[in-house]
Amino acid sequence: MAAFETLYRRHKDPLWRYLLRGADDREACNEMFQDVWSGVVRGRGSWEPRARFTTWLYTLAHNRLVDYYRLRKLATAPLEEADDVVGPEHESPDAIARNAQLRQRLLDTLAQLPQEQREAFLLKEEGGLSLEEIGQATGVGRETVKSRLRYALAKLRQELSDVWP
């Protein structure tokens, strides 16, 4: 139990953020979060030490997210459709609020990304997974992951050009 608790403490926040950004629904995120950890506990016998725990954890989370998308029938919009991103309209001259504003812009832009690109970005940023591990968790090849990340970064850079030279 102590080992599980250690693992949980280490991974809970990134995983929760990954699910929250993926689902964009706090209630659904909390439910999925519990499901994923329940899966970890029940499937502890099937986990093989040669696989990295983080990869396995995010594979479970990815599958849970996919189920969620299916239930919600969320269309995975192609990149072309996501091109016309509404620019930030809530700029404030207040320097104190700049961080909060930046955060919101980042989240808005991320939310505009196609689901596959957003997921690749989150798996890298929150899970700390490598290209191969992201591919393993999402069931695609390394080059596909690279391509998704390239487009995600290009979009983020485009939307945050004032703070991202």
Binding site: Y8, Q34, W37, R103, L153
Partner: peptide, 26 residues
């Protein structure tokens, strides 16, 4: 983008009630 993300996400963590639920379930 990474720096901005880390900055933006700092302090955002799972609610404590989730911790209790998950650990209790385990």
């Amino acid at each position: 983008a990474s720096r901005a993300w880390r900055e933006a996400m700092r302090g955002e963590s799972a609610p404590p009630e989730l911790d209790d639920a998950v650990l209790g379930m385990a």
